[in-house]
Simulated assay, not measured.
Amino acid sequence: MNSRDLPDAVWRKSSRSANNSQCVEVAFLPDDRVALRDTKHLGTGPALLVSRGGWTAFESAATEGGLTRP
């Protein structure tokens, strides 16, 4: 999906992100999905949609160190 197709999404970027357009933004959608996009496309690029459960699993893995490379 293109991020332009989500005009009501409220995109958030980590406060730890630099201003170099190499960040990921997240938007929590009202239909229990979560959208992710790359900031370098300035709001015009693709958005990845995942379920709220998928997002929760990703957050857990990230905070618990479960995303290490093999």
Score class of each variant (00 low, 15 high):
N19P: 08
L67F: 05
S21W: 04
A57R: 07
V24T: 13
T56F: 10
D38V: 12
V26R: 07
W55I: 03
W11M: 01
G45V: 14
S14P: 02
A9K: 02
V34G: 04
G53C: 08
P46I: 11
D32L: 11
V24W: 06
Q22W: 08
D32E: 14
S14A: 05
G53T: 14
T44D: 10
G54H: 14
F58C: 11
A9N: 02
S17K: 09
R16S: 11
D32S: 09
T68G: 09
D38A: 06
A35C: 06
R37N: 13
S21T: 01
V26P: 01
G65I: 00
P70G: 06
V24D: 04
P7K: 08
A57Q: 03
R69E: 09
T44I: 07
A61V: 07
E25Y: 01
L29P: 10
P70A: 09
R16V: 11
M1G: 00
W11S: 00
Q22F: 10
L67G: 00
L29Y: 09
R16Y: 15
S15N: 09
G65Q: 00
S14R: 10
L6Y: 03
T39L: 07
K13N: 11
P7Q: 12
P46C: 12
A35Y: 03
D5L: 06
L42R: 14
A9W: 06
F28G: 02
A61M: 13
R12T: 14
D5K: 05
